[in-house]
Every structure is written in structure tokens, then in C-alpha cells.
Design a protein around this nucleic acid. Structure first.
Lengths: 216, 216
DNA sequence: AACTTAAGTACACAATGTGTGTACTTTATG
DNA sequence: CATAAAGTACACACATTGTGTACTTAAGTT
């Protein structure tokens, strides 16, 4: 949402090109993976000079950062998270959170990997990372606080530690292992994540209050 | 343990150089991260020509693959896992597994990242990956089977799904989020992982049978 | 419609990195 | 000691990230 660069695009052509570049980058990432996401490839796919890419994104890191924001918008991050807060109580919110992870993050894996990579090797991308991490963490904190506020936080956890663990469980490694390596369906993933969350974080919820145990 | 390449080293000098190269690579990875792990850097650190590195490892992917095996041996993977099987029952084995992850995988993060990267971009490294994944999965499967065999597998899980989830929870993302971002100590990590594992996978174990709940 | 400026093109260039080729020199080992 | 493997010292091809600069085209402005 918040633009990474300070200056707004001035020209209509510029705005159009920028959008084309991001769309091209997104397509390449999905179809060919991070390694294929070179400035040359983006330029070629967008039908534009490589030099032009550098007018919009001075470095590859900035391209990837912008791509993250673009994909968040396109894939509807805000809407997906909104469903979590629409839940009637904290335990249901955890279920919704599991559903969100299964729905949204399974689609996000390639972009997420790209972003992580850039963060690791580019100090300039630190600001962008800080923002995203803070956002994720605050969402998890809100979930944990709600659970705690309703007096349903399981023994052994504090609002802080539960938030941290929930934060850690937003992991592309984990989701990829299940969905790609173990070929889990999104449904199976959502159900079992919900089960894990409930049994771990919700007090007195040995078996969840859902349509029974998942048995897919 | 199993050598990646078929042919044994023939020469004593060769064996020495190979060891020096792996040690150099390991040091670079730990001290400067994956980006710094170039063939030139390894050669320089080992006091050898860049060309010589290519005699031992035809590609960077093969170097990283060999490095993984090297680090597994040096950091004592087998010994660390052995403690898991020494546990008296399945629930205790889960605790030991949590301790293993906290002990071993926190040290492994840079190498693990490097290996993952190589896997993603190098089809030739697939064989190595297959082997490692199969090993991890079989360990998790053994844990889940034991739990199931003792009749203590929690509702909602089968031996398969529990094994898959345990497998997915061996995640550098997750461990890094807790240890690096959230500055958890290894102790804290081990305790909370154990708590998560027990409450998720062990039937009738709402609060663990350990020195009480972790409260660090 | 003419003017002005931003955006994009078409080159060329430097710096790194991977990986190969080849003739020469050193070192292990029978 | 003789021989073959291991390592050196070059040089090369290629890909990729960035930068520089003169030119052209499209978009706003008056």
C-alpha cells in the first residue's frame, strides 16, 4: 500500500510502464522462479529496455520490494486478513488465521522467497523488512492478546510467547514442506493448522469445537 | 556420511586439500554468510587457486552439497538425533526432538539456507535433496509411529499427518524467526517447542508432564 | 498547435561472478 | 627415480548488475 519510493509517479506513461514491469516480474516469478527474475528478463517480458527498468527500480532489491507490495494488493492480503478479525471469538479467529495462511500464503511462496533472499543480501531492503515483520508480528500479537483477554490462553504461554510462536509459524518453509513436498491440499493444511493452533494455544480445547477432527 | 561423488579421493594431498576447502567454506558461511561463499573466496581462504576448487567441486552446487555433509558430521547430527531415540517413551522422545531442534538447527541455519538455495536453482542437486528429505521424513515418521504405537496420538492426527507436520516444523524460517527476530534463548525455544509438540500430538497432555510450564 | 520536459531508447562501459581450456610445475607414491 | 595425479598460472567465454550519455518519443502545458 505505502509506496516504497518517496516521489509519486508523475507521468501517465510512467505509471503504465511501472505496472507492466511489476506484472511481468510477478509472472516470471510464478512461472520460472526467482532465479529467472533478472532485470533483463523483466525488461524483455514487459517489452521495454533494460535501462528503463532501472529508471523505475534502481536496484533489483527495490524491484523485489515493490513486487511484494504489488502482490499483496493483487492477491488481496488485507481482505484475507480481515476475515480473521470477523471471527466471533479468539478460538474462531485462530481457525480463521489457519485458513488465511492456507489460502494466502500458499500462493505467496515464490514472492516470499524472493523477498527473503533480497533481505538477506541487501542492507537497503532492511526498512521494508522491518515494516513487514512489524505488521505480521502485530497481527499475531493481536490474536494472542484476544485469546488472553478471553481467558483462554493455554497454560505455559504468555501473550508474548504465543504471539512470537504464531509469528514464527508464518513460515514459507513449513507451508512449502506440506503443500509441495507432502502434497497436502489447502483444505487439509487449513484443518491441521487449525488443530495445531487450537490444541497448542487454546486452554481446555483438547479436541477442537469444529465439525469433528479432520480426517482427510 | 555417504560421499556425494562416486570416486574416492586418491591422493593424500587431495584429501587434505578437500578438507581445507570444506573448512574454509564452513568458516566463510558462518562468518560472512552465503553471499560471501564464492569459489574465489573459498580458494583464497584455503590458500589455493580458484582452479583447484573446481577440481574438487565442479560446480558451486556440489561444493554446497558436500559442505552440508561435512557440517552434519562436524556438528554431530547423528549424536544429536541419537538422544531422541534414547527417550523412554514417545512423549519424552518429542521433548528430546524439541531439544535437538533447538540445539542442532539453531547452529545450522546458514548452511541450511545455502543448501536450500542451491536446491532451488540447481536440478543436479536434486538427488542430494531427496536423500536429506527422506532422512528427515523417516525420523519424523518414526516419532509419529512410536506415539501411535503407544496409543498416545492425539485426536485428529494419523501417524502420516503427524509425521508430515513434524517434518514441516523442521523449519529454518521458524527457528530463525524465534531465535534471531524474537531473540529467544535456546532454552526458551526448546521448552516452547516441546510444549507445542506435546499439546498438539500427545493425547491427554493438556499440560505437559515436565517441571511445570516454561515461564522464561 | 507549439513548446517543454519527463520517460524511454540505443548504445557503450566497468565490475563480479561462474565455469572451461591448456601448458607448466609440484608432490605423492609404486 | 619414474610416473601419474594434483595443483598453478594464465587466458577465455558468458551472464548479470549497475552506470553513463546522447538521442528520440510521448505526455503535459500554455
Amino acid at each position: 500500500m505505502a509506496p516504497t519510493s518517496i516521489s509519486e509517479p508523475v507521468n501517465a506513461r510512467s505509471r503504465r510502464t511501472r505496472a507492466t514491469l511489476l506484472a511481468a516480474a510477478h509472472a516470471i516469478l510464478k512461472e520460472e522462479g526467482f532465479e529467472a527474475l533478472t532485470m533483463t528478463a523483466v525488461a524483455a517480458r514487459a517489452g521495454v529496455t533494460r535501462r528503463a527498468v532501472y529508471m523505475h527500480f534502481p536496484t533489483r532489491a527495490e524491484l523485489v520490494g515493490a513486487l511484494f507490495d504489488h502482490v499483496s494488493a493483487v492477491e488481496g492480503l488485507a481482505e484475507s486478513v480481515a476475515e480473521v478479525w470477523a471471527a466471533p471469538d479468539a478460538a474462531a479467529a485462530l481457525d480463521a488465521w489457519a485458513a488465511h495462511l492456507a489460502r494466502y500464503h500458499t500462493r505467496l511462496i515464490p514472492v516470499d522467497r524472493a523477498v527473503q533472499r533480497v533481505w538477506r543480501l541487501d542492507p537497503d531492503a532492511a526498512a521494508h523488512r522491518e515494516r513487514v515483520v512489524a505488521e505480521k508480528l502485530s497481527t499475531c500479537r493481536r490474536l494472542a492478546d484476544r485469546l488472553n483477554g478471553e481467558g483462554r490462553l493455554a497454560a505455559g504461554w504468555t501473550a508474548e510467547s504465543a504471539a512470537d510462536m504464531l509469528f514464527a509459524l508464518i513460515s514459507s518453509d513449513m507451508i512449502e514442506a506440506l503443500v509441495v513436498d507432502r502434497r497436502w491440499s489447502r483444505r487439509r493444511l487449513a484443518d491441521h493448522l487449525a488443530l495445531l493452533f487450537r490444541s497448542t494455544f487454546v486452554a481446555g480445547d483438547g479436541t477442537p469445537a469444529r465439525p469433528a477432527a479432520p480426517a482427510h
